[in-house]
């Protein structure tokens, strides 16, 4: 299954992903129309900064997700195959247990509609909006194997470089 991966060293904190996310989850799906909508469309991922480092945080669609476990009404559910955690506003009573147990703090709350809002991996799109919007390709949407293969290539290159330096010494 495809996942959204974050390359930690690439985020420059431009917030393009947040904007694209909010637009994608508007009724009109266009920036200018979205601005006029009520309630204002909400983003579902968050670029957080610690010291000078920036990082986009978004639902990891955890294996055995805590938010699904604590939901007493069945509003939060997880697809057994894709692992995507989706939220059913009809069943949500707005108790915010899911908010409290999420280890990443990425389950938001839309007060006007009294429901939780979270990443749904953009079911209407080929590639999630945040990934498409990211100018530095810090966000990648790909199969796990492809991502780890990419990481292996980087690691191997680093090994060669380090080895070469050791040889030089």
């Amino acid at each position: 299954m495809k996942e959204i991966f974050v390359r930690l060293d690439r985020c420059v904190g431009c917030h393009s992903c947040e904007l694209a996310c909010a637009v994608e989850h508007s009724a009109a799906k266009s920036l200018f129309a979205a601005l006029a909508e009520a309630p204002v469309p909400r983003k579902r991922l968050y670029v957080e900064q610690v010291l000078t480092h920036k990082l986009p945080l978004l639902c990891r669609h955890c294996e055995d997700a805590p938010c699904v476990r604590v939901c007493r009404t069945g509003a939060m559910s997880q697809d057994a195959v894709s692992r995507i955690v989706t939220h059913d506003p009809e069943r949500c009573i707005g108790c915010w247990m899911c908010t409290m147990v999420c280890p990443y703090g990425v389950i938001g709350r839309q007060l006007e509609r009294r429901i939780a809002v979270k990443c749904d991996r953009c079911p209407d799109r080929e590639e999630p909006a945040c990934v498409t919007a990211c100018p530095t390709r810090a966000l990648l949407y790909m199969e796990e194997e492809d991502f780890s293969e990419r990481m292996r290539r980087v690691a191997a290159a680093e090994v060669v470089e380090g080895y070469g330096r050791a040889q030089a010494v």
Partner: peptide, 10 residues
């Protein structure tokens, strides 16, 4: 609340 959790996660 969520900001604090996010900050810690990052």
């Amino acid at each position: 609340f969520t900001r604090r959790v996010q900050h810690r996660a990052v």
